[in-house]
Amino acid sequence: MKPPSFDYVRPRSLSEALGILAARGDGARLLAGGQSLMPALNMRLLSPELVVDIGGLDDLRGIVERDGLVRIGALTRHVDLQRSAIVVRHVPLLAVAIDHVAHPAIRNRGTIGGSIAFADPAAELPACAVALQARMIVAGMAGTRIVPADEFFLGIYETALGPDEILVALEFDAVGPDQRSAFAELARRRGDYALVGLAAHARVDADRLDEVRLVYFSIGPTPVRARTAEALLTGRPLTRDTVTAAQAALAADLDPPADTQASSAARRQMARVLLARVVMELLDPVPIGAGG
C-alpha cells in the first residue's frame, strides 16, 4: 500500500503557493499536517500530480486574540489548540472538542485548517466552526475573501474553497460572559470518529437560551444545524417538556446516514440523547479539564 507517484513542492510564501495552485489547478493537492491526506495517498484513493506542502508557511500558524476576535492560523496544530490559554478562555468549545479528535500522535501533526478544508462530515472541528459562526479567511490570487462557516461546507469533502485558493485562518468571536458552548459525542472507542456528535453554542440567561445553535456532525454530508430544535429551545424557560419537544423535532432536522458503524435509526436516537446532554451542559457547565 504505497502512494502513487507525485511531484512535490514546498513553497516559501503564500503568494508562491497560490501561484503554484493557479498554474497547476486540479492536479495539485495541498499538504498541511497530512493526517487526512496521507492515508488517502497511501490507499491510492487520490493520485495528485503535485503535492504542495504548505508546512513552511509560518505566517499561517498561531493563535492571537485582539478586540474580541480570535484568529487561528490554518496551520495551527490540534495540539497547539489544546495548549492554548486563548482558546480555553475565548473559544472554549474548541478546547473541549479537540480532546476528542483522534489520538495524541495525530494531534501533533493535524491542523485546524486541514481539518476544516478536508471537510470530513464526521470531524469535530467543522461542526464547532459552524456552531461558533467562524469566518474562514480564504486567500486567492485575487486577494483574500471571508466565507462564513454556514456557507463553507457544501458536501462530503466539499467546501467553498476554489481549486486555486488556500484557507489561511479562521476567525472566531471571543465568547461573551453570557455565552456558553457545549460539546458531546458518542464514539465506539476513544479517538474514533463519532457515530454522532453535537457542538452547541447559545446565549444563556438563567434557565433560558437564546441564539441557540445546535450543530450535529457525522449525521449528514456536512455539519448539520438542527434548526427546528434550535427554535424550540430559544427564548423560553427550559423544562423537561421543552427538551422533549426539541428532541422530537430532530426528526425533521436530521436525516442521518447508515453505515457499518450505526444505522440511521440508531443515529437519530443518539442525536436525541446528545441534545439533552448539551442542553444540560449549557445550563450547568462542567469546567474544562474536569470532565472526560
Binding site: 499538504l31 492515508p39 489520538h103
Partner: peptide, 29 residues
C-alpha cells in the same frame, strides 16, 4: 497499517510523537 491507525510506526519528529506512515520523508527535511 499505513493509514495512521495502529501506532506501530510511532517515532519522534522534532521532539513530537508522530505516525511515521503519515509523514513524507521530504517533509522531514
Amino acid at each position: 497499517c499505513e493509514h495512521g491507525v495502529c501506532g506501530a510506526c510511532t517515532l519522534l519528529l522534532d521532539g513530537d510523537m508522530v505516525r511515521g506512515c503519515l509523514v513524507l520523508a521530504v517533509q522531514a527535511d
